[in-house]
Simulated scan of single mutants.
Amino acid sequence: MSADRISRRVFAGGIAALALARRAAAQGYAGLGETADGFARVAPGKLFTFPADHGPHPEFRIEWWYLTANLVDRSGAACGLQWTLFRQATQPGPQGEGWANQQLWMGHAAVTRADTHRFGELFSRGGVGQAGVTARPFAAWIDDWEIKGSEQTDDRTLSPLTLKASGTDFSYALTLEADRPVVLQGDGGFSRKSERGQASYYYSQPFFRARGTFTIDDKPVDVTGQAWMDREWSSQPLDADQTGWDWLSLHLASGDKLMLYRLRQKDGRHYPFGNWINADGRTQMIAGNDIQMTPKATAEVAGRKLPLEWQIAIPSRSFSIVCKPLNAKAWMGTGFSYWEGPISFVGTHDGVGYLELTGY
């Protein structure tokens, strides 16, 4: 690698870290409650079009391509992985050329087993090709981390794809396949985040079947399982008084899927929301007053007390489960730190999923 390449990477990472740190000190978790004057607004009634909406939306301030996978190796031991690409604009307006581009890119990758959690982080400035997303053939990358399609990738299912990432002490490479279309979250893809109008555009592919190789400390194992990819973009997804969120993606043994979150507010009146996704891909919103998310046990992680065991109930569906983490130490000590890790659950329904906790 050339000295020029190294210096530009360091420069890009430094600029990105500085800008993101400034936003972290702003309103709400990671500055997501900051006002977004000049950026595009999220409104109900959007008509989603694919493959275009698989690609970037630079007129909005922030978006992400977010994948988690619940896996098992040949012995049946559980493990999980995360791959995330974030885009954030430092200012609205026409896109600058090259190093003057106002888009910042950040990648997170992690692997989790019961006995260990490893993660990595990458930064890039937009406009120089080091990171980006294309809609067709679909590809999202930062350095050599990538989710990639081909001419055979179906725009409706966003499948098949290949996925890879690596850190100093871990790596993974998977193939992802799905036979059902992506699903729109919220009200036709309009995902309300507060009673004051904050919202995002949000869709998911929760039906990925995953297979490939999972490596920790140069010891590869073959793995199979289920993966869930989320796509969201917005310009102000949180209100200023919302401090973070507790989010779950659940793969039920029945084949149904469930997405739940509660946005925590300073006054204690947390804002819950959910979508039930039937095994055939049909979705139904779950009213906030029908969602009970109750922390049952906490653990001390990275100097923070985190609610890692949850009682989840949806009375209208006679749904009641208890979730527990595979590894309580699944802390992402990245520029914006948070907890993200695989979980399992039992009760009226059994299965596996992922839990994310931010703002603690």
Rank of each mutant, 00 (worst) to 15 (best):
K305C: 13
A165E: 06
Y172N: 10
I62H: 10
L306R: 03
Y338P: 02
Y261T: 02
Y172H: 05
R113M: 00
T84V: 08
W64Q: 11
R23M: 08
I277K: 08
Q236R: 08
D73S: 01
A302I: 09
F190E: 06
T358K: 07
G197E: 15
F50Y: 06
T35R: 13
T348L: 03
G225N: 12
M1V: 15
V133Q: 02
D280R: 13
F138R: 09
W105G: 05
P94M: 12
S316E: 15
L326T: 00
G347S: 02
V72G: 00
G351P: 04
R118Y: 02
F170A: 02
P94C: 12
A25I: 08
R136C: 12
S171W: 07
A199Y: 04
A21T: 13
G45R: 05
P94E: 15
R87F: 14
A24I: 07
P51F: 05
D179F: 00
A287R: 08
P56M: 00
A139L: 02
T224C: 09
H57S: 02
G76W: 01
H57D: 06
G126D: 03
G167M: 12
D239A: 09
H54N: 02
R209P: 03
Y338H: 05
G281L: 10
Q265Y: 08
T358H: 10
A299Q: 09
K164E: 09
L104I: 14
Q82E: 13
K148N: 13
A16V: 07
I343M: 01
D155E: 04
Q185P: 08
A140W: 04
